[in-house]
Design a protein around this nucleic acid. Structure first.
Lengths: 106, 106
DNA sequence: CGGTATCCTCGATGATACTG
DNA sequence: CAGTATCATCGAGGATACCG
């Protein structure tokens, strides 16, 4: 106790899970394209593999993404939005709407 | 050109402006409480003054907050949401809803 | 009160090479 | 293809002192 006044705020749970530069952009790909593979994300986002790996693991740990492995050789894995992940759609939509209205030159 | 495939995405404008741990939490205070002073934010968020100062300047530079100085001695300044800032309310609301539904133990 | 100045630490990210 | 390993950089953030 005697911690930060808003330490149990629901908004903070969200920022803890996605409060970095990449997570939101990663999630955007899932909402646009559906289940994605590692290479898909790397191609479109141009994040280095270790960075991408770290973000995916964190999102997986937060229960937002789920990794499914379909074969080991050749390796094939897909990441899917969980129920909690799907529930983030309104967040992305709201961010997109805001970015469209108030972008530089928008 | 030949940059990142989604470099002009509206979502990225949003993450560039608020893609850190504090910005969202700062904005939350404005939606909850209205115009805020430096000390108000420091008390409730418990961010160090230099960090808070940096975040406020960045949000101001992004056109989300506006600083109004009412007196110089004693100093009194207030930060207000701009129109672009007010337009972020749906984002915070969506994050809050998500955090409430999918919080650990929620 | 509303910050700025310093110094410090750590995580986020990038570049590159490598592996099963 | 789907990552891991390694090394380096840079900004975010914290602690503290200080200033007008």
């Amino acid at each position: 106790m005697t911690g930060k006044p808003r330490e149990n705020c629901p908004v903070m749970h969200a920022t803890n899970a996605m409060g970095d530069q990449w997570s939101i952009l990663i999630l955007r790909e899932f909402f646009l394209e559906g289940p994605r593979r590692f290479q898909d994300l790397q191609d479109v986002l141009e994040a280095s593999p270790n960075t991408l790996s770290a973000r995916l693991k964190k999102l997986e740990g937060a229960g937002i993404l789920e990794r499914r492995q379909y074969s080991k050789n050749p390796p094939r894995a897909e990441y899917h939005l969980t129920e909690a992940g799907e529930a983030l759609r309104p967040v992305i939509r709201a961010l997109h709407a805001w970015g469209s209205s108030f972008a530089p030159g928008g």
